[in-house]
């Protein structure tokens, strides 16, 4: 994707910059962009190390199990056809817990494991099953307890209260997830193969 978007962005900017006579700004932005990348990475570095460290403690304790117990009714509601399949239910819960805790790097492999197990149960291997579709939509909704990256960026830009977006983020994510689930239920109904 970026192999296409990235050069297009730069080429179009240069053409527009030359045509509109913004050449000096164009020159400045080459270096200021690289500098901004460094500044952002530096602040991300501290926060992401800290958070990854804390989360690797969480992963090795019963904290993860506690959360998966809390979300169990949600999983059963979202994946009714998986109710009797303990292994898949477990994989889905782990994927959701990893998302909630912001373990992005752990969440994806767990999610892929879950969808591959679902594919084994899938009757039509060429088409996403209902639960596979739901799993994907939930993973795109990214329910996250602490949005660490964005807090780190706010911190790096000198915000007076970097964490005050946490509850707004929760509300927005939950709304996004509910809409996503409703939309996927509608899509499931409409595309049901007879």
């Amino acid at each position: 994707m970026l192999n296409f978007i990235w050069p297009i962005f730069i080429i179009c900017s240069i053409i527009y910059g030359i045509l509109s006579g913004n050449l000096s700004q164009l020159n400045n932005s080459v270096f200021s962009g690289a500098q901004d990348a460094l500044n952002t990475t530096m602040t991300l570095l501290g926060s992401l190390c800290l958070w990854n460290g804390l989360m690797s403690i969480a992963e090795k304790t019963k904290f993860v199990e506690t959360i998966s117990k809390i979300i169990k009714p949600v999983v059963q509601f979202l994946f009714p056809e998986m109710k009797n399949n303990k292994k898949i239910t477990q994989e889905i819960s782990m994927n959701m817990v990893a998302n909630i805790l912001g373990l992005g790097n752990a969440a994806t492999p767990l999610g892929l494991k879950a969808i591959n197990s679902m594919q084994k149960e899938n009757k039509n291997k060429k088409q996403l099953s209902d639960s596979m579709l739901t799993l994907i939509v939930i993973n795109t909704a990214s329910i996250q307890l602490i949005p660490t990256t964005v807090i780190a960026i706010r911190n790096s830009l000198g915000s007076s209260n970097p964490t005050n977006i946490i509850v707004p983020v929760w509300i927005a994510t939950i709304i996004a997830a509910i809409v996503g689930i409703i939309a996927s239920r509608i899509v499931i109904k409409l595309t049901k193969s007879h």
Binding site: I10, G17, N22, G33, D36, L44, C49
Partner: peptide
């Protein structure tokens, strides 16, 4: 976990350099 976080951040740094420059150009042009 923290040293893994270090690796992840260093890994995305080149990507961020490329994209920050592109976004900066888009904006300032």
């Amino acid at each position: 976990g923290a040293s893994e976080g270090l690796k992840i951040t260093l890994k995305i740094f080149p990507t961020l350099v490329g994209l920050f420059v592109a976004i900066s150009l888009l904006k300032n042009s």
